[in-house]
Design a protein around this nucleic acid. Structure first.
Length: 203
DNA sequence: TGCTTCTCTGTAGAATCTTT
DNA sequence: AAAGATTCTACAGAGAAGCA
């Protein structure tokens, strides 16, 4: 395996690109947002990353990046959050910058993070994928099955008011956390820009 | 130093959903 | 309705961390 730290940097760069292009990558299909456009954007991101000095992506395809790196990381980050909440270790569990960035990306447009059956989900933004309403349950709703053979997905009752309230509270907390992360990222950008502006080499 | 356990990563397969 | 895409879980392999 390659150096984990280096790989993290690569992935962080990738996720930043994803965040910048999420409107297209995860947007509803339209005249401009087509499958081809999405695929092209993934490939464009890959090429940009290679050009920016991330050789890790050289031997990866756009599909691999999308399926293996992004989708899996996303699922696993969500699972991590879920686990932290289940074990009551919300404030203790350490989330890497990568995890935080993933959540920041997901927080705005993903039904996975928002959970399903939450009334306001998608109400305050239009970027959620068209798959959102009837998409499969999020990890928060799927108890892990011990056997690979019984992989039928289980949908938790929509009628349970307590379950809905818990989801709503989780959603509220996550939104606030994501807002905070967005602000922190923005702050970093401003900081970097300021440093560049102040640098004598930049004059 | 060697062993054990934990964590992360990639692949394969299956269920579910969207697009055509 | 069929094909293809998306999402998720299980499993296995490899490295990291902890401990005697």
């Amino acid at each position: 395996m390659e150096d984990v730290k280096t790989k993290d940097v690569d992935k962080f760069a990738l996720f930043k690109k994803i965040q910048q292009n999420k409107a297209l990558l995860f947007g509803k299909f339209s005249n401009t947002v087509t499958r081809g456009a999405k695929d092209a954007k993934w490939e464009e991101i890959r090429l940009e990353l290679v050009a920016e000095g991330h050789p890790y992506f050289e031997d990866k395809t756009a599909k691999q990046i999308k399926d293996n790196l992004w989708t899996l990381s996303k699922s696993r980050t969500i699972a991590k959050v879920d686990q932290a909440k289940k074990t009551g270790s919300d404030g203790v569990t350490k989330f890497s910058d990568l995890d935080k960035l993933t959540l920041a990306i997901l927080g705005v447009e993903s039904p996975q993070v928002q959970g399903l059956n939450v009334p306001e989900a998608g109400a305050d933004f239009d970027q959620s994928p068209s798959t959102s309403e009837k998409r499969q349950p999020s990890p928060w709703e799927i108890p892990k099955t011990p056997l690979a053979g019984n992989r039928k997905r289980k949908v938790i009752s929509e009628d349970d008011p307590l379950d809905g309230e818990i989801k709503e509270q989780k959603l509220r907390k996550l939104r606030l956390e994501n807002q905070l992360l967005e602000l922190q990222i923005e702050e970093k950008h401003l900081d970097i820009n300021k440093k560049r502006t102040d640098s004598p080499y930049y004059q």
